[in-house]
Design a protein around this nucleic acid. Structure first.
Lengths: 343, 343
DNA sequence: TATTTTTGTTCAAACGTTGAAACAAATATA
DNA sequence: TATATTTGTTTCAACGTTTGAACAAAAATA
């Protein structure tokens, strides 16, 4: 079968009686190659079904045209649509994208980083695992001079480009909305405060309460991993308080969903008895009954901007471009779970 | 900064006063290299922070250790957990995984295939886009002699290894369950019959009805893309029939969810009035109320077997191993939406 | 016609690693 | 002690492409 031996630039050269180097130049449209040769080369290349050997050219050029993307989990609309957008933008410019999932594990994240470095990616776009507190592996990327862009889950200490939303302001939007609905005791199912975005959401929550003259009660702020089970557990915990909240703001949609389930199991009406707001605007928030109010982060936009920022870095390497901290606007999507009927 | 020039095998050789080739052999634990040199090399490699250049070794060895995975959309538990498992198995053996999403588009799928081939992947694991009917690009993979494994969405005509579940039997399980619940008029929200898996689900549905002595009515079988909107549209259509069904079997969970929404909007009780069964066991099926009965395909298992099958091909290339058609068992997860209370 | 410029191509080295073959030294076997 | 074997290393070419320099021929300029 013809499948065994791949055709190389050399084969084309032989057919035409010219040198491989001429073929190479012809293929890359070098100005000094005659149009005659160029068309001839293209023709033969087609005939022989020539496919350039990326490995060889990458080696020679010291550039792999591969970009690594590290995400906690592809299994969410948020991340998968970001990836889709990143692919769009980078493919357009001739880059291919390698996706690695950390599964929220620090160890897996480190392995992924090593794998990407080993594959000689030209750049990395990443969102950190929840678990990650040590930044050594990210420092490693930086120290190799490989452009690194963080999105969503970033870390200020790293001093790299970042794309995300204004979590602090988003919390304000949420609280403002709930206050407008007449809520006075707003609980916060929070993410772990060692992660920047969750810390900011907590800060925003506190400051907003203060702004609206509501008291801050520590018993109403509970940190977790924001999974469904966390939401269930914490909601139960909140319902056991002598003084129950009249609203719950969860920093993640899955936690919000868990909370909703517990409310329904206890025949507590959302939004009438307790209003509920989530975060991330996962598709299911609009599918469950009642639909859940949530914060849309415009993931495609985040993906687009992250990819474009990387391209900028790749275009002008080791240039001392000042750091980009790109904060995109978020949007509160108001649904049934927080619309008090009596208002 | 030290980041600019990467240390190579040559640098290590220079430090130790030996040849690059000796270093290479030491690093790959060649038996003829003395332990003394080996430890020395390892030591210096560490000191100089040496990272092997994958590109060079891949070029030389004619093997990239990269495997491409093509999926329609990462945004589902089914596909993302398959990927996770594939990564597990392949990373273990020193392979890295490149993920490409086709977004159910034939054009994007073709582009992805080209990108993977260009990147010189050693093998490809793929699940075909719904849209795909022309197999030319998959033939291209085959013709290059690159191992190809299909899963879930496969195609018999391609003559390649396949991993999936027994769709025909799964339909039988569903119908049997519904019949046990006393259902007599079972509608089928089907996938497009040009796709093998959906064709088989339809065949299973028909044959099972026949087996249980139930009439087959063409008006109760409607093909679609199985999105939420499709489910809604088709459910409305079914409710307009003079003779309504008493059960609906959807070949996809999203379609089932859409159907459920329409039932609730029309105050039709599931399962009492109309029982409902979905397919794929997406996480949300257990989260909505009522929870939706669905078919679990054991995605991790599919991922594991697909990866292992590829490894087998990579291990013994161009060997005439007979084709593997691996059909794994599926499982019906019975939930509220199909449990008739009066039985 | 002599000289410069332009055009189209070839030459040769490089990218970093690998592995077969060659080789010398050390060790074992006769 | 002479010869065979083993051990540890070096030599060298190769993987396929790219690129700057060199070169000859053709075209333009003087």
């Amino acid at each position: 079968m013809a499948s065994k031996k791949k055709t190389t630039i050399k084969d084309i050269a032989n057919v035409l009686g010219i040198t491989p180097s001429a073929v190479s130049k012809a293929l890359s449209n070098h100005p000094r190659i005659s149009d005659k040769t160029k068309t001839a080369v293209l023709q033969i290349a087609q005939n022989l079904n020539y496919q350039p050997n990326h490995l060889a050219s990458a080696l020679r050029k010291g550039k792999s045209n591969l970009v690594g993307v590290i995400i906690p989990k592809a299994n969410s609309h948020f991340f998968s649509s970001i990836i889709e957008k990143i692919e769009d933008v980078l493919n357009e410019k001739g880059y291919n994208v390698i996706i690695a999932q950390s599964n929220e594990s620090y160890k897996k994240e480190c392995k992924s980083i090593d794998a990407l470095l080993y594959t000689q990616v030209d750049g990395i776009i990443a969102s950190m695992a929840n678990e990650t507190v040590k930044l050594d592996y990210y420092e490693k990327i930086k120290s190799k001079g490989i452009p690194l862009i963080l999105f969503d889950r970033g870390e200020n200490d790293l001093n790299v480009d970042y794309v995300g939303i204004d979590d602090y302001l988003s919390s304000h939007m949420v609280i403002e909305h709930l206050v407008e609905q007449g809520c006075k005791r707003i609980a916060h199912i929070a993410g772990f405060s060692h992660t920047r975005i969750y810390k900011n959401r907590i800060r925003g929550y506190r400051d907003a309460l203060e702004k609206f003259g509501l008291p801050i009660e520590e018993s109403l702020i509970i940190e977790s991993n924001l999974g469904i089970e966390d939401g269930r557990r914490i909601m139960r915990q909140l319902l056991e308080l002598k003084n129950k909240p009249d609203a719950v703001y969860a920093a993640g949609d899955y936690a919000a969903l868990g909370a909703l389930q517990v409310l329904q199991e206890n025949h507590i009406d959302a939004p009438k008895d307790i209003a509920l707001v989530g975060f991330t605007n996962e598709p299911f928030t609009s599918l469950v009954t009642p639909s859940i109010t949530s914060v849309e982060q415009h993931s495609e936009q985040i993906g687009k901007v992250a990819a474009e920022t990387l391209l900028k870095r790749l275009g002008s390497p080791n240039e001392k471009v000042s750091l980009n901290k790109l904060i995109l606007p978020a949007e509160l999507i108001i649904r049934s779970s927080s619309k008090k009927v009596n208002i």
